[in-house]
């Protein structure tokens, strides 16, 4: 299948404190990365590996020091970009941040969801339609007249997502959007993300610390020191337990167990997939094989 590349990052470098005279170590260092339309990419990396900087580069909150970024064919690193183009890019690349409290603007849920479409200058009837359908998508229709502080963290984050969906973006970047939530809130948000990806074909870039969330993605990108460390399917990535650990991350628990057992000299086959059942199966097979002798 030949899918269109939605985001193309070409040899991008970005460093924060420009003008201090000294050479700062760049947050993003000669990074090249293409992301297909409609894919679900998880971005992993320890703190300071450049994940969040990458997200901010994609919708022009930050501009790269050097290199090119193309979004849907538009060169967003073009210095002559008009304000209208900037708005158009931001409309197409939605961003959901870590702290749900610091993203909500209005005192009523539906007013907040309407904030984005209102900024786009849409017709009131169209805004109303989009707000209703966005709240429907995140399953928060019953709460549209509530005020945000009456909601739980997961619910607030779903409202923040609804606020982005109402702008009808082609891609949504989740910048550690699950980091501040409790397990049930995290599940609510992950379910919503998966649904958006599968049902509405929205490209998802999910920056996270949680390996079990990354396992749900089509593709996992591990960043280290502002560049790609590993890039591949979750299975291919997590197979490299040594490399994952060198990047300061944990591999998923089931792989961890097998890795440790193998290191101790047990001859266990690598499982065929990341599924817990498959991992359990290879351990069980090994157990049966060894106890038979």
């Amino acid at each position: 299948m030949n899918k269109k590349q939605f985001i193309q990052i070409k040899n991008v470098t970005f460093s924060y404190d420009e003008g201090t005279g000294q050479l700062p170590s760049p947050a993003i260092n000669h990074l090249s990365l293409d992301i297909e339309e409609g894919s679900f990419v998880a971005v992993l990396g320890h703190n300071g590996s450049g994940k969040s900087t990458l997200a901010k580069l994609l919708n022009l909150i930050l501009t790269p020091t050097s290199g090119e970024i193309y979004i849907d064919g538009t060169r967003i690193t073009d210095p002559d970009l008009s304000d209208e183009d900037v708005l158009n890019i931001r409309k197409n690349i939605g961003m959901v941040f870590q702290n749900p409290d610091n993203q909500l603007v209005a005192t009523i849920v539906e007013e907040d969801v309407a904030f984005g479409p209102e900024n786009l200058g849409l017709e009131p009837s169209e805004i109303r339609r989009r707000v209703n359908s966005a709240l429907e998508t995140v399953g928060m229709s019953d709460f549209k007249r509530h005020s945000p502080h009456q909601l739980s963290g997961g619910q607030k984050q779903r409202i923040a997502i609804a606020g982005i969906i109402a702008m009808m973006p082609k891609c949504i970047v989740f910048d550690e959007s699950t980091a501040m939530l409790d397990p049930s809130g995290r599940r609510e948000v992950m379910d919503t993300i998966l649904r958006l990806n599968r049902e509405q074909n929205i490209t998802i870039i999910h920056i996270t610390h949680y390996m079990n969330e990354a396992m749900l993605a089509d593709r996992v990108v591990v960043m280290n020191e502002g560049n790609l460390l590993i890039d591949g399917t979750p299975y291919d990535v997590f197979k490299n337990v040594d490399l994952i650990k060198s990047a300061g991350l944990d591999s998923p628990q089931q792989f961890d167990i097998i890795y440790e057992l193998r290191r101790k000299g047990h001859d266990i086959k690598m499982p065929e997939s990341l599924k817990t059942e498959d991992c359990a199966k290879v351990v069980y097979d090994y157990y049966k094989r060894t106890t038979k002798d």
Partner: peptide
Amino acid sequence: TAMECRCYHGGDGRTKMN
């Protein structure tokens, strides 16, 4: 930052839902 990401660009060209 979040407002900027949601295309906020001042009151010009802004509409209201209600």
